[in-house]
Amino acid sequence: MKDQITHGLENSVTSTPSKISATQVNVHYGDAHAIKDVNVEIAPNTVTAFIGPSGCGKSTFLRCLNRMNDTIDICRVTGNILLDGEDIYDRKVDPVQLRAKVGMVFQKPNPFPKSIYDNIAYGPRIHGLFKTKADLDTIVENALRRAAIWDEVKDRLDAPGTGLSGGQQQRICIARAIATAPDVLLMDEPCSALDPIATAQVEELIDELRENYSVVIVTHSMQQAARVSQKTAFFHLGNLVEYDDTTKIFTNPRDPRTESYITGRIG
């Protein structure tokens, strides 16, 4: 089985250098072994989908990529995760700086109880990314445009972000993440709390974002993975079972477990 994974990886590495490269990653929650020897290479300007049944560790692994797991006391991460060739778990790395480069969007839209403008300006403000108010206005506008929500909110930037619809809120959260000028965007089931129309909007946005960012998306829905991603990784019980081009995974999976999952026999 291991051979198969390595084989798959080699295939993906040949074309472009990796944005993120994770080797032998293990995660423990107290006594529970949540992630077991995971190796993944994430390519730039690609949407990578993590799929798998609930509790398989895909979200946990995602949270390792910007060290969000640091905020949980009992969580222990071992192995190597390199971002542009630099170990993000190195002692010299400040997780705060890392997270500016690796942004994150969450399952439930979580706009801060502030105005839309303040929500987007939050990241640039804490990271000190602007000199003048005009700079900040530009950053906010660009972020909102890239998140494809500028037209909907440009007239009410002072309104609270919590007053928007779920799909709009989630795009505000994406805009908020974009505003810190990240290289990588991590999305943890970004559409699971949205209705089908909002989901379509966000999926479209994710596809556009690929132009500027590496996007890693955790999703419950195989259709979504098939629609938006170029690469797909299948997790099962903490193991990375298979990682390959999305088309390959969905048409010709190598591992029987992947096949069972895709055809709906486990999950």
């Binding site: 705060v96 602007f130 950053i139 290289d183």
Partner: peptide
Amino acid sequence: MTQTSAKQSLFAVTYHTKRRN
């Protein structure tokens, strides 16, 4: 959009980050 942080190595902790810490 300013892309200053994108070019920087993760290992170099900026002055701004030091102040924040």
